[in-house]
Amino acid sequence: MKLLNISGSPHVHSDESTKRIMWRVNMALIPALIVATLYFGVNALLVTLVSVVSCVLFQWLIEKFIMKVPTTIGDGSAVVTGLLLAFNVPATASMLWIVVIGALVAIGIGKMAFGGLGKNPFNPALVGRVFLLISFPVQMTTWPKVGGIFPTRLFTDADSGATPLGIIKEHGTEALPQAWEMFVGHMGGSFGEVSALAILIGAIYLLCRKIISWHIPVAFIGTAFVFSGILYLCNGEQFIDPVTTILTGGIMLGACFMATDMVTSPMSKVGQLIFGFGCGLLTIIIRNWGAYPEGVSFAILLMNSVTPLINRWCKPARFAK
């Protein structure tokens, strides 16, 4: 007979694993990818593919040749980063190479420089995205028009359209698409962000699987809704209405997938509510008074930086008090 094993209790484990969590997040992102492909065509798929492959590749290279540790690409976290990074860029042909640089920054600087999954203070996909936004402002804000699965000019840039937020910055609120169109995603934008419906489907799946809890998305979207509502009531001319606010830009994707990233968000429920509140508030402030039309990435990154403080402040209620 083989040797008996000895260890401290407990001797059984739930079937929970990092790998399973990450692959479930990947599953939850698939609806958004499908909708993006329907609206922006093969370009969206190609950008996603390039982004995912380069994220996984960079992680493997860094672990193998720089860190010299066993590779962890199988846990699916690099795929999550790749998907989220791709979802945050426009589906244009020029993104095919730019997104590779984004992947390098996301994985190399956003994650592995801190020691790999679990040790990064900032959401790696957002680090990559913000890097690209600052380094390639033109390409990153050249939005393709919504077309079919096969755009007329494959592999080249389609006619540029504009995001609703861009439209507002330039033309005011009259030229906006309908709320319903925005809900299903028929508008310009970073291709993963456009469809609130697809994102919500994924988010509900994650909620059912208990991978995310409702606290961050609800606090985030709720704060954005209420705050923009107050602004709209104060001055309906200058500010956009709250429904448009939450349906446009990256709020949905950010609130459901990026702010809820386990590694960079607070652990306690109260902490998560504070975190979501901060994200929502900062997003609206940046949108209305900042230089950029969109502020979700900056808002989440800023709140990521205060996560350790929130963790320190919001302790769970001790049983024996």
């Binding site: 040797l3 008996l4 094993n5 000895i6 260890s7 401290g8």
Partner: peptide
């Protein structure tokens, strides 16, 4: 070796 230790 008589048993295998699997803990911390």
């Amino acid at each position: 070796t008589k048993v295998h230790y699997d803990g911390l």
